[in-house]
């Protein structure tokens, strides 16, 4: 069989996981909409929503990993993250998307689109940092 393939993805991406929005409303992870993130961030005293545009997607250092380079916010801060190919990001107006949607669906039963260069993902920053 294949070598151990640890699933390092957090449990809340599993279909059916219950997510609490900032106003207390409960939703399943697969039912979340862009507005849920925007509205939750609006009433959060600590978090601010930001848009992160996918600029590059490259192979990561381990077989199931990818390096994704984002341009974040109006200042276009360059941020690079290494995640497993099945890690889902929430794309504005589109929903969950990952570099390998088939694997995300297989592992977590979470319907995903293919994450592509140019997609604009929901991200968060801390309001209080100056």
């Amino acid at each position: 069989s294949s070598p151990s393939s640890p699933v390092a993805l957090p449990p809340f991406f599993m279909r059916g996981s219950i997510i609490q929005l900032a106003d207390g409303e409960l939703k399943r992870v697969e039912d979340l909409k862009t507005e849920d993130f925007i509205q939750s961030a609006e009433i959060s005293s600590e978090l601010k929503i930001d848009s992160s545009t996918v600029e590059r997607i490259d192979c990561g250092q381990s077989p199931n990993a990818v390096l994704i380079q984002f341009s974040v916010g109006e200042l276009k801060a360059q941020v690079c993250v290494e995640v497993l190919v099945e890690y889902p990001f929430f794309v504005f107006g589109q929903g969950w998307s990952s570099c390998c949607p088939d694997r995300t669906t297989q592992l977590f039963e979470l319907s995903c689109a293919k994450l592509c260069v140019g997609d604009v993902c929901v991200s968060l920053t801390l309001r209080s940092l100056r």
Binding site: F12, I18, I19, S40, L124
Partner: peptide
């Protein structure tokens, strides 16, 4: 007696990676 199983509830912000430190506004 059967105790009700608690269902984990995750905060919305868990789903979003903190991608960047806020730069000065």
């Amino acid at each position: 007696n059967v105790e009700p199983r608690s269902v984990p509830v995750f905060p919305w912000h868990s789903l979003v990676p903190f991608l960047a430190p806020t730069q000065s506004d």
